[in-house]
Amino acid sequence: MSSILDSVNQRTQMVGQNRLELLLFKLRGRQVYGINVFKVREVLQCPELTQIPQRHNVVRGVAHIRGHTISVMDLSLATGGPALENLDKCFVVIAEYNRGVQGFLVNSVERIVNMNWSDIHPPPRGSGNDHYLTAVTEIDNELIEIIDVERVLAEIAPTSDVVSEEVLAKSAGKEPEDKIVLIADDSAVARNQIKRTIEQLGMNVVTKKDGREALDYLLGLVSEGKVINDEILLLISDIEMPEMDGYTLTAEIRAHDQLKSLWVLLHTSLSGVFNQAMVKKVGANDFIPKFNPDELASAVQKRLEVEQD
Rank of each mutant, 00 (worst) to 15 (best):
M1T: 12
S2L: 13
S2C: 07
D6N: 11
S7Y: 08
Q10A: 12
R11G: 03
Q13V: 15
G16M: 13
G16T: 10
Q17M: 13
N18V: 04
L23S: 07
F25E: 09
R30F: 13
Y33F: 14
Y33C: 02
G34L: 04
I35Y: 02
N36P: 07
N36I: 07
E42C: 07
V43H: 06
V43I: 13
L44P: 02
P47S: 11
T50P: 02
V58N: 10
G61A: 07
G61E: 04
G67E: 12
H68L: 14
H68A: 14
A78V: 03
A78F: 06
G80T: 07
G80L: 05
P82V: 07
E85D: 14
N86Q: 14
K89R: 09
C90W: 03
F91R: 04
V92T: 13
I94E: 00
G100D: 14
G103Q: 04
S108F: 04
V109R: 05
E110D: 12
V113Q: 15
W117T: 01
W117H: 14
G128I: 00
D130F: 08
H131E: 03
Y132W: 06
T134A: 01
T134S: 11
V136K: 00
T137I: 02
E138K: 15
D140F: 08
N141R: 13
E142S: 06
I146W: 01
I146C: 11
I147Y: 01
V149L: 06
R151V: 01
V152A: 02
L153F: 05
E155K: 13
P158Y: 05
T159H: 11
D161K: 12
L168H: 03
K170H: 08
K170N: 08
S171M: 10
E175A: 15
E177Y: 10
D178A: 14
I180D: 01
V181G: 03
D186T: 00
A188P: 05
N192P: 03
K195S: 14
R196A: 10
I198K: 03
V206D: 08
A214L: 02
D216S: 07
S223Q: 15
E224H: 14
V227S: 10
N229Y: 07
E231F: 01
I232Q: 03
L233M: 08
I236T: 15
I239F: 02
M241N: 01
P242T: 00
L249F: 04
H256F: 09
L259H: 09
K260I: 04
S261E: 14
L262G: 01
L266Y: 01
L270K: 12
N275I: 09
Q276C: 06
K280W: 10
V282I: 10
G283W: 02
N285W: 08
D286F: 10
D286T: 10
K290T: 01
P293C: 10
A297C: 05
Q301W: 08
L304C: 06
E305S: 08
